[in-house]
Amino acid sequence: MKLNLKIWRQKDANTKGQIKEYPIDGIDGDMSFLEMMDVLNEDLIAKGEEPVEFDHDCREGICGSCSLQINGEPHGPDRMVTTCQLHMRKFKDNDTIVIEPFRAKAFPVIKDLIVDRTAFDRIQQAGGYISVNTSGHTVDANAIPINKEDADDSFYAAACIGCGACVAACKNASAMLFTSAKVSQYALLPQGRIEAVERVQNMVRQMDLEGFGNCTNTGACEVECPKGISLENIARMNREYLSAKVKG
């Protein structure tokens, strides 16, 4: 497969970037998108050029490291997959593929296609946890009976890998799907209810401080999320937030 890649190149955070074209040949349909990027980088290194920097780690869709805006969509045209699980068979011979970093003021570019997603870490640190006594008298989590539907919904919310595709897809660069998944996974469990009032307010405050945009319910985040995180989580976060404000 022969492709024409248009890739965002940017030396560092303080340098202006630009799109550069890279024709590439010999790409197999069974390769993953990141393997295709590896082939490109090997070519560039062989030619003595700077390879394209991009984030990756597990390459099996669970770590949330890989990103990339591919032809205008986070993680590319396939659904429910991360970039590392995207196969080149989704593209045709002689296709032009535009590859850009996830764009948001809160996700500044570090180099080429790598963006700083530590804003998500700070949202998580603002309340995405439960305080558990680990002194040796810890109550077994399984000792507390939990409604099956709540346990399932909590698990689905916890499936969020924090990749940032929701922010990248949203026309407003809103982080509500991510934040709501992190709020929901605790809000649905009795262990999470103890700090629920403070949690939602602190996490939303941090989300706003980071400079993410406002959610306008377009639903783009849900469509592009590689883990299928539902918009129901955003509604739940809104309820949690309003109820927390009423309770003070």
């Binding site: 965002w8 805006q69 205008g72 535009v98 764009r103 003021k105 407003n172 400079g211 993410f212």
Partner: peptide, 9 residues
């Protein structure tokens, strides 16, 4: 303001 640099595509 939340997306200062827009996507090329």
């Amino acid at each position: 303001k939340a997306r200062v640099i827009k996507y090329v595509k």
